[in-house]
Design a protein around this nucleic acid. Structure first.
Length: 573
RNA sequence: GACUCUGUAGCUCAGCUGGUAGAGCAAUUGACUCUUAAUCAAUGGGUCGAGGGUUCGAAUCCCUCCGGGGUCACCA
């Protein structure tokens, strides 16, 4: 990057960088810096009576500086929090030479620099636990100014809130906004709690392919990519269900995977193109067992995060205490619409949709119609955790038929806060039935359903060898995290949510300028002055351009030898 | 995709019915030995998102485009 692209403050920081080097200070030293305390440890366990922490070595990012002549205060932020530091000139510089304090600390250090300090902990007259610095080391120089967020009495000033910048530059968000890190620590804790539970039960964590020749296991539009060596299309997985069930066929009796899935669909507050799902399959179980297990898992997560089962989500208070309410899908629809659809065929369902004012078209089969009615009229009502059970067979091509009613399947979804959180089945293990269900999906696909599943013949073959009765469950980790951290958008629980690419104004490459005989050093000046394209340049009068160039050179003290008026008009001709 | 709000200094924002820009923080210089949104004094910093139009004159009004937020729709 050329210097004219930089802001004044960036130039000053680069200047400081050079001055540090001139003073023999390496702004990016290689040495290990061994700390022996964190901010949080000091703040929670410092005790002036016992006089602990009298020899601390601490490192962190300089977040503020208050210089008061011969002494200064500042704040260093490490992973665990912020702690104040105190520096006195004559302690840092006991001799005649006060450069280290007057120049280095006061002038050449900036907010954002990473510092290591050695000293002892004490309490200031204002009562703040502080590190009295005996020695400091610059560990990394920051040459781009941070957004400065200040806080007093719990009020935040100049908060860094622009969502685009926060998500795009998450590192800044994490540095500057307290509380952001908390969400991600909680996310990890949620995952760890689940993993602990599964491992305690002896279930095995496995990894299955992300690149799949047939994207199976869910109704969704996949991303397509291409494998050069095999010369075949490959799909990014939309689910890992079919692979995990192959493992049950293979003799594992409990497998689970935290899996990144990918769906080529819209993006909004609750959808990111890549997202995390946990799927688990346990042999010799059915969906009733899985409901109990799911309750246990979720209650455990809530307790581990909040030490209670009540969780505030927006305006609502949600109680994750076991047991959760259970209701069948037909009962739910009956309750919220008054229609008993249990005996209806496709035509009758379409009429119900019409009466309820739900849009539908001819590509929609029976399952999709019921799904629409439920989604439109029922889903939103389930704020407290509720299992919706016994879905129609058309909606669930991988799920075993209900033991008491072949029109239904042994499936449940867990609804919380009006949204689906989990999805689970008594898994279909009848290979002949499975093939028929796939073929039905194919018919839907031919009718125009872009989400209908592909037929996976190898999966059917696996079932032909025999899969034990199995129950499986999938849960959206992002949505679970949203609930547990009271986050309104999925972007808040993903470290790096998908963003549109950053756009810059288009500009011609430097060669197009140099072709005209313009020296390289002037090309960047022209770009900075706003002549992003050669065509723009051609439109200005040579006299004006000559004047502007010389003016820019002088104003910005670039120290370039000015071109002659002749040169300039030659460029333009 | 529709509607709506929005784009001004490094950051957060002001700028009335048109008269070519302001504040706080940050930065620079200086003062200050327990401060904490430190304080005090001085200074620098802006093609007002881009292009076009109306006008003697546009950050402000109009049009087009670009970027962003929100709501809705599509979509789990």
């Amino acid at each position: 990057m050329s210097n004219i692209e930089l802001s004044e403050q960036e130039l000053i920081r680069r200047g400081s960088l050079q001055k540090l080097r001139d003073l023999g200070i390496n702004p990016y030293p290689a040495n290990e810096f061994k700390i022996n305390a964190t901010a949080n440890q000091i703040l929670t366990s410092f005790d002036p009576e016992t006089g602990n922490f009298q020899d601390v070595i601490f490192a962190g990012r300089l977040m503020s500086q208050r210089i008061m002549g011969k002494v200064s205060f500042g704040e260093l932020q490490d992973e665990s929090g912020r702690i104040q530091i105190y520096i006195s000139r004559d302690e840092i510089c006991p001799g005649e030479d006060k450069t280290l304090y007057n120049e280095v600390f006061k002038k050449l250090l900036d907010i954002g620099d990473i510092l290591g300090v050695k000293g002892y902990v004490f309490v200031t007259q204002m009562g703040e636990i502080t590190i009295h610095v005996r020695e400091f080391t610059l560990l990394s120089k920051s040459i781009k100014p941070l957004p400065v967020v200040k806080e007093k009495d719990g009020k935040t000033f100049d908060a860094f809130t622009d969502p685009e910048q926060r998500y795009r530059q998450r590192y800044l968000d994490l540095i500057v906004n307290p509380g952001v890190k908390e969400v991600f620590l909680k996310r990890t804790k949620i995952i760890n709690q689940m993993r602990d539970l599964f491992n305690e039960r002896g279930y095995v964590e496995v990894e299955t392919p992300i690149l799949q020749p047939i994207p199976g296991g869910a109704a969704a539009r996949p991303f397509v990519t291409h494998h050069n060596a095999l010369n075949i299309p490959l799909y990014l997985r939309v689910a890992n269900e079919l692979y995990l069930k192959r493992l049950i066929v293979g003799g594992f009796e409990g497998v689970y995977e935290f899996s990144k899935d990918f769906r080529n669909e819209g993006m909004d507050r609750t959808h990111n193109p890549e997202f995390t799902v946990m799927e688990i399959y346990v042999a010799y179980k059915d969906y009733n067992w899985m409901m109990d297990f799911t309750e246990e898992m979720i209650e455990r997560v809530a307790l581990s995060l909040h030490s209670k089962t009540l969780v505030t989500v927006g305006e609502k208070l949600i109680d994750f205490k076991r047991p959760f309410k259970r209701i069948t899908m037909y009962e739910s629809i009956k309750e919220h619409t008054g229609f008993d659809i249990s005996e209806m065929n496709e035509e009758e369902l379409r009429e119900v949709c019409l009466k309820l004012g739900i849009e539908c078209d001819n590509t929609m089969g029976k399952g999709k119609l019921i799904d629409e009615i439920f989604g439109e009229k029922c889903e939103g009502h389930y704020i407290q955790p509720t299992f919706i059970t016994d879905y129609p067979v058309e909606m669930s091509p991988l799920c075993k038929k209900h033991r008491n009613n072949p029109e239904l399947t042994e499936r449940f979804e867990l609804m919380v806060n009006g949204k689906e959180l989990c999805n689970a089945y008594s898994e279909l293990n009848d290979p002949i039935d499975q093939l028929e269900r796939f073929q039905e999906q194919l018919r839907l696909s031919q009718k125009g359903d872009v989400e209908a599943m592909f037929i996976d013949m190898d999966f059917v073959r696996a079932l032909e060898y025999g899969m034990p009765p199995t129950s499986g469950m999938g849960i959206g980790i992002d949505r679970l995290t949203m609930l547990m951290t009271n986050s309104v958008s999925i972007q808040d629980v993903l470290l790096f949510p998908q963003m549109k690419p950053e756009k810059r104004a288009e500009e011609d490459p430097a060669e197009k300028y140099t072709e005209l005989g313009i020296p390289v050093e002037w090309v960047e000046v022209l770009l900075k002055m706003g002549y992003k394209k050669v065509s723009q340049l051609k439109e200005v009068k040579p006299g004006k351009l000559f004047n502007d160039l010389c003016g820019f050179n002088k104003k910005n003290q670039l120290g370039l030898p000015n071109p002659s008026a002749n040169d300039v008009s030659n460029w333009l001709n």
